[in-house]
Design a protein around this nucleic acid. Structure first.
Length: 1006
RNA sequence: GGGCACGUGGCGGAAUUGGUAUACGCGUACGGCUCAGAACCGUAUCCCGCAAGGGUUGAGAGUUCGAGUCUCUCCGUGCCCACCA
């Protein structure tokens, strides 16, 4: 037998598989379909990254296993071909982006083919192909027609180096994600896509998909759904009547709202500054502040250490609808214009930012939520049963407070007469919950507070029994004194103390004493007059109108208060609309035309053109027309191809290089025939990748000349789409969670609403791989020169070794540093697999080992079959490879290996190392190993234990007992006690207890 | 500041989900094959101890017959988001 030479066999089999069309996916309704997707590579000069290989190998293994299990697998590949790297390279070298793209594609294709991935190469697509972006443009026009794309002047993040507008997602720490240049704010006309209209569905539908939990969490965080209330504040002192709407999630703190803050960009501010009649006394000062805050870059705004600034509107005030109090109004940039209503009611007692601002400008801080919590199921339980225990508990709390009193003294703005005490009492704990989490849960439930941090429990919990009045359950309740401690009193900075203090609400000591002496109803401890007779605190920590709302739960009270002041329930999101313009060359042209004549028409005859289909007549919520004068390119003129330009350099004016191509730009308006200009912005990178998984299904139809509006819904294409979608399993990087993954879900939902795709979600399952770092743990980058070139590795070790190494190197979902040194392990393994081929036999007798390990050997084989299969599905490739290594070690100990066993082993290894297994298989088989069914196992053989019973004495292992089959507990005990090693430990005591786990261990407690 | 992970040999990491901690691999040491080499083969390899035995999963406590695994506190690390009312 020749020695293993990967260079000879790998290419051979790659060509064979391609010739035999082994990996083509044809829609076969008889088989179960499996759409297996990886993120197609973004073309750059660096070529294939070892990180691509990690993900692609993993999903290749799954594809191969599923094929072996008889499934109809689609595992496609293509190119994310538009983008800056290509464009920048074109500028540098003078080559055309098309030819660069061709070169890059060829290189990537060569590299991928050298690794033996079982892609269906017949479905290859490239986003920069006009046949492809014709569809991208068509989908964009649908967004436009539905009023989901709009052009608006807005402050965007502008990277002065790349000369490109950045999406929020592309700004990292106030700098450009790509080049690290600090981002500037620029007012620019930008095309926007209203992903916000889908925010609710993008959030809600996460429930139904099988995404890794951390991916769901990250997406939910990014969408940032928040439910609250919109409350109107009447203004006074103006020459006219006006109301400002604020957004709050805490209407129950309304009585604590002591001032109002509005964002500098708020419409009311603009209105006020323009209105000559307004009686703002410090108009100049306000204008100056607004100009200043606008000038601030993103970096300045964050780098200022969040020192809050603002300016008061002199001469105007707002009226708190809860108590009719007059409160001041501020303009401050710590309030964001585009979140909620762009205005807030400030409750300094219960919001950190408001607190900071109030301190600085010496504004009133009013506590309105009591934070002493009592859970008293069955109202009078406290008193009816064992009031003594309750009293003791509270006394204990007070005592602890007294002991630690000094921590809270000597503080700016806090004297002895101030309200203070920190307690949370929790009772009736769920069985598995611990007191701290139960306590926190109580607080959160009762008040809606999210920032509850437990610091320490003082003393031991006091338990007492009570009987609920309704029903006679005798229940043990624990009372826990939970303490918010200032760690290391002296070292704690003033700011930290203040923070903790302001998060809490203090209850007067004597009120607790009063309770202890008088035993009044617990709620009465919190009775406090606020204004007049009608407002009170309750034991729930809620501020309510005493007559009507007493004793309500937190949610109900919020609702009542909202009704009381006429507020409106409202949902807000952090998610912002998608900036869909770039002022660069290498991207899909936005297929729109601006016609001034049409614009005038639209603006002059708003009512008459409402029925015109070609002119969009959508309006913004404020009634302003959306996109007046913008006309879509006619479908027959799609695609709008990129024109040839002399220079790909971006212009300093912030226009795309396309703007200089007057022949291309100047066109006739498709609507009125007048002179018009094309849009010269191109689409962002995320456009083409938002629907590529659909393109794979219909790749052969992309180049058809028929109009897309006819093709897309046609039965021919719908049949294919319905056959393959949704994607069954999509693996990719975490870095795309809030970008590509969210964007493509958005596009998919939009297409779903048109009936063009069969499901509301594109991906049934999403998993994620960890990054491969450079040797030493740094991130791989061109500038550091630490990039591992897969070509060299393939040449030196072979594709199979590289694949195996990447699967074996560590847990798939964790980041891990590369180590070329360690590659020798998998390589040795493959060489030993190769050599094992010399020892195969059909003669059972030769296999028989004199030491008769044959039974365990058989069992190990079946266990391995089970483990490898399960590990692959769970992405535990490292342990799957390890199991194969263990099996090989076992094979090598045998005098000979049965052909049957060896072939099972090869079939298990085949998805990991497709070339060497194919070669070894071919020595005695005529067909491909990759057409063989996935091995099955005998469950009876996998369940067998190791054949030894572990014997413990007092939990320590003292001996092993070889056993066959099951023993009863009594037998096991007897057998164990016969052993000398055991006698030694048991002799001087009696056995108190025996714990027996059948087939595994026995523990003798002496 | 918020959220999510995580902490096991010289290194990458296993541990059937509460049941023999350190599997598998790298590295290292010694031996073999070899004129020689190692990308070969064999043996050993958590710590203390000659041994019997004892100790060990960031530190400390708790629950348990039994804890790397569950609970709590402390210490440390990584990632993501951050003025989101």
């Amino acid at each position: 037998m020749k020695s293993y030479n990967h260079r000879k066999i790998e290419k051979k089999w790659q060509q064979y598989w391609e010739r035999k069309k082994l990996n083509l996916a044809t829609a076969d309704p008889k088989k179960k379909k499996f759409y297996d997707l990886i993120e197609f590579p973004f073309l750059s000069g660096e070529g294939l990254h070892v990180g691509h290989i990690r993900s692609y190998t993993a999903m290749d293994i799954i594809a191969r296993k599923r094929r072996a299990e008889g499934q109809n697998v689609l595992y496609p590949i293509g190119w994310d071909a538009f983008g800056l790297p290509t464009e920048n390279f074109a500028i540098k070298t003078g080559k055309s982006p098309e030819s660069i793209t061709r070169e890059l594609t060829n290189n990537f294709r060569r590299q991928l083919k050298a690794l033996g991935f079982s892609f269906d190469w017949s479905r290859e697509v490239a986003t920069s192909d006009p046949d492809y972006y014709k569809w991208t443009q068509w989908i964009f026009l649908k967004f436009f027609e539905k009023g989901l794309a709009y052009k608006k002047k807005m402050a965007i993040n502008w990277c002065p180096k790349d000369k490109i507008g950045l999406a929020n997602e592309e700004v990292v720490d106030g700098a450009c994600e790509r080049c690290g240049t600090p981002v500037e704010k620029r007012d620019k006309d930008q095309w926007m896509l209203t992903i916000t209209k889908y925010a609710d569905r993008l959030d809600r539908d996460l429930e139904a998909v099988d995404f890794l939990e951390k991916i769901k969490i990250q997406q939910r965080n990014w969408i940032g759904r928040s439910e609250g209330v919109e409350i109107g504040f009447r203004l006074q002192g103006l020459g006219f009547s006006e109301e400002i709407k604020v957004f709050t999630t805490r209407p129950d703190t309304l009585f604590g709202a002591t001032y109002l803050v509005i964002a500098p960009e708020h419409e009311f501010v603009r209105k006020l500054m323009q209105n000559q009649e307004s009686r703002i006394k410090n108009q100049d000062e306000v204008v100056r502040y607004i100009v200043l805050s606008k000038k601030k870059s993103e970096i300045e705004r964050t780098a200022e250490g969040k020192e809050k600034t603002g300016v008061k509107l002199e001469g105007v005030s707002a009226v708190n609808p809860a108590n009719q109090e007059n409160i001041p109004i501020f303009v401050a940039d710590y309030v964001l214009a585009d979140y909620g209503t762009g205005a807030i009611m400030a409750v300094p007692a219960h919001d950190e930012r408001d607190f900071e601002f109030a301190k600085k400008y010496k504004l009133q801080i009013r506590n309105v939520v009591a934070q002493l919590f009592v859970r008293n199921e069955g109202k009078d339980a406290w008193h009816s049963d064992e009031p003594e225990a309750t009293r003791q508990a509270v006394a204990c709390l007070v005592k602890h407070w007294q002991e630690n009193k000094y921590l809270f003294l000597n503080k700016k703005g806090l004297s002895d007469s101030d309200e203070r005490v920190v307690v949370a009492v929790s009772g009736g704990i769920d069985s598995k919950e611990n007191p701290m989490t139960a306590g926190i849960r109580e607080i959160v439930e009762e008040t809606g507070y999210q920032k509850v941090k437990f610091v320490k429990a003082l003393g031991s919990p006091i338990a007492f029994r009570y009987f609920a009045l309704n029903g006679n359950q005798n229940r043990l309740t624990f009372l826990y004194p939970l303490y918010f401690q200032l760690t290391g009193s002296d070292q704690v900075s003033v700011s930290k103390r203040e923070k903790i203090l302001h998060d809490l609400v203090w209850v007067k000591e004597e009120e607790i004493k009063k309770y202890l002496e008088g035993g009044r109803g617990f709620n009465s401890v919190f009775w406090q007059r606020l204004k007049g007779e009608d407002v009170a605190y309750t034991g729930n920590g809620l501020l309510v109108n005493s007559g009507q709302f007493n004793g309500l739960g937190s949610a109900d009270a919020k609702k009542k208060i909202t009704e009381f002041v006429g507020g409106k329930i409202m949902t807000t999101y952090k998610l912002r609309d998608w900036v869909f313009s770039r002022q660069r060359y290498w991207g899909e042209p936005i297929p729109l035309i601006f016609c001034d004549a049409c614009r005038k028409l639209v603006e002059n005859y708003k009512s008459q053109i409402t029925n015109s289909k070609q002119i969009t007549n959508h309006k913004f919520s404020n009634g302003e027309l959306m996109n007046p004068g913008w006309v879509p390119v006619l479908e027959k003129d799609l695609p709008v191809k990129l024109p040839k330009v002399k220079n790909y350099k971006p212009t300093d004016t912030g226009e795309s290089p396309l703007a200089n191509v007057s022949k291309w730009v100047n066109v006739k308006c498709p609507h009125c025939g007048g002179a018009a200009r094309r849009e010269t912005d191109t689409m962002p990178n995320w456009a083409g990748s938002s629907w590529y998984y659909i393109a794979y299904c219909i790749s052969e139809n992309l180049k058809s000349q028929a109009p897309i509006s006819k093709q897309f819904p046609s039965p021919n294409i719908q049949k294919k789409i319905k056959h393959w979608l949704p994607v069954d399993w999509y693996n990719g990087g975490m870095e795309h969670t809030t970008l590509h993954l969210l964007y493509s879900r958005f596009w998919h939902k939009f297409l779903f609403d048109f009936g063009l795709v069969p499901t509301s979600e594109p991906y049934a399952k999403r998993t994620s791989h960890g990054l491969i770092l450079a040797e030493g743990g740094a991130k791989m980058s061109k500038s550091k020169g630490n990039i591992v070139n897969p070509d060299e590795i393939v040449k030196r070790f072979g594709a199979d070794t590289l694949r195996l190494y990447e699967m074996f190197m560590g847990p798939f979902d964790q980041h891990i540093a590369w180590s070329t040194e360690s590659m020798i392990g998998p390589r040795r393994f493959l060489e030993r697999v190769w050599k094992l081929g010399e020892r195969i036999t059909n003669q059972e007798s030769r296999i028989k080992n004199p030491e008769s390990k044959i039974v365990n050997h058989e069992s190990l084989l079946h266990k391995t079959v089970k483990k490898v299969g399960e590990d692959i599905e769970a992405l535990r490739f490292n342990t799957a490879v390890s199991a194969l290594m263990i099996l090989l070690n076992d094979f090598e100990k045998m005098p000979a290996v049965s052909k049957n066993h060896y072939e099972i082993f090869l079939r298990l290894l085949a998805p990991f190392a497709p070339h060497i297994t194919e070669e070894l298989w071919s020595f005695s088989n005529k067909t491909s190993i990759h057409l063989e069914p996935w091995p099955s196992y005998n469950p009876a053989l996998t369940e067998r234990g190791t054949g030894t019973l572990v014997i413990q004495v007092n939990g320590k292992v003292r001996a092993n007992l070889p056993i066959d089959g099951e023993l009863s507990a009594e037998e096991a005990k007897t057998r164990a006690l016969e052993l000398r090693e055991i006698k030694k430990w048991v002799s001087d005591g009696t056995i108190k207890k025996v714990v027996y786990v059948p087939g595994r261990l026995i523990n003798l407690v002496v």
